[in-house]
Amino acid sequence: MEQFLQATINGLLQGGLYALVGVGFSLVWGVIHVVNIAHGAFVILGAYVAWKLDGAFGIDPLLGLVVAAVLLFVIGYAVQRGVINLVINAPIWMTLLLTFGLELLLVNGLILIFTGDYRSIATSYASGGLSFGDVRIPYGRLLAFGLAVLLTGLLAMFMSRSKTGQAINATGMDRVTARLMGINARHIYALTFAISAALAGAAGTMVGIVGTFNPVDAGVFTLRSFVIAVLGGLGNMWGALAGGIVLGLVEAWSGQYLSGTLIHAIGFGVLILVLIVRPTGLLGRPYSEARAET
């Protein structure tokens, strides 16, 4: 029973981190209709930024997180505005290939610079934790979870309350109409992609604080983002949080009974099932084009 409780807590906390990884991916897919295969590479890039700042200049990772987010924001804006916007209306495999090319570039660039060795960002606080009997809650993971919920909440508020957020929503629903209403779609797309990249950067820093990372992990984070986005419903912020937590729990629970990497297979199984049975995701913002998108 305690083992199960521990697994549940681990899964819940890990799920929060997953949510932070996946929420930006979901936003881009929902609004720009681009599946960003380079999303995982952005996450890892964020981790390296914070790791380097900590290692070279002794900058606290939490400050490093802010720097990573800002840097990724700038990169994200430039990539969307300067590259992806150029072929945004091409057939879907074009944008898929484009972001895959970007992923190759980033991941292998990172390997050239930092090698493929596993790194982690050491902090004084991440290793401590709360204990309740045999059940343990590490501070680092608690922090990651709290930050994920906070950022997701802020993003959800930004999307529903702010004028820019509403412009993003409007553009996502109907770009043509949005442009007629005077919304600068090029800027809005770039901004959306930038926000997504910034969140990935923040998530990457937390990944580095609570565990280890290397460039090759990028692909795994992208794949998890698929699961989270589809589970939560595209472009649905709270949905992404729920999707992340579901994935975290499913992985943690199945880890109790299943060996090694079969856990990943479970994640994919869930994804395929959701796609087939309920393509609008668990929280179901009705993106009905799941079966009509061309």
Binding site: W29, H33, V35, I92, W93, L96, L223, F226, V227, V230, L258, S259, G260, T261, L262, H264, A265, F268, G269, L271, I272, L275, I276, P279, E289, A290, R291, A292, E293, T294
Partner: peptide, 22 residues
């Protein structure tokens, strides 16, 4: 259709790899 098909096929391939590993 579209991205959903792409993602689903990709997931099947990745899932199958994990099954073979296990």
């Amino acid at each position: 259709r579209g991205h959903y098909f792409a993602i689903a096929t990709l997931s099947v391939a990745e899932g199958m790899r994990e099954i073979v590993v296990n």
